[in-house]
């Protein structure tokens, strides 16, 4: 977990922002761009290390994700993004607990840590939510992006 703080995930999300920046926000995210044709560093670094945003809190517009509404607020200090708050996120109407947990077996729990295992591919939640990116982008636009 040494490297497992939340920064990387968000930085990689933000890495997609330039993709959106060049597109008409009312249309779709770009398609069919070859991933290998876009050096990851070239995409990531300008956003992750970018300075020069105007300090303050900037609230993005609300966008519809399949699981509900997503609205973000980007906090800028010292010209840099210090955090992103999710202001509006899915509230599930079902308040009843699905299962009485005490009736169930104890499942194996452990602290997650990075593993060094050779793999062919990786399953993970890609932060593809265009809704999330659009809201962040609209907030960053206000911050001088």
């Amino acid at each position: 977990m040494r490297k497992a703080h939340r920064y990387s995930t968000i930085v990689s999300t933000l890495a997609l922002v330039p993709y959106l920046a060049g597109t008409d926000m009312a249309s779709s995210a770009p398609t069919r761009a070859s991933v290998t044709a876009v050096p990851q560093d070239a995409v990531t670094i300008p956003v992750a290390t970018r300075r020069g945003f105007a300090d303050g809190q900037y609230t993005g517009a609300t966008f519809d994700a399949y699981y509900g509404q997503v609205q973000t607020r980007v906090n800028i200090r010292g010209g840099q993004i210090v955090s992103i708050d999710v202001l509006d996120y899915p509230n599930h109407t079902g308040t009843s607990r699905y299962i009485n947990r005490q009736a169930l077996p104890m499942l194996k729990r452990q602290v997650v840590r990075a593993q060094d295992i050779r793999v062919n591919m990786v399953s993970g939640a890609t932060l593809t939510s265009t809704a999330f990116l659009r809201s962040v982008y609209s907030a960053l636009t206000k911050a001088g992006y």
Binding site: M1, K3, A4, H5, R6, S8, T9, S12, V112, R113, A114, Q115, I117, R118, V119, N120, M121, V122, S123, G124, A125, T126, L127
Partner: peptide, 28 residues
């Protein structure tokens, strides 16, 4: 050999599974 991404660090995996004729999906 399928890794499971560390949800806190995009470039890390927290484990891996062997799969054949199966599907795997992760929701975040």
């Amino acid at each position: 050999r399928t890794g499971i991404r560390n949800p806190f660090a995009e470039d890390e995996i927290i484990g891996a599974v062997r799969l054949s004729n199966r599907g795997i999906a992760t929701s975040g």
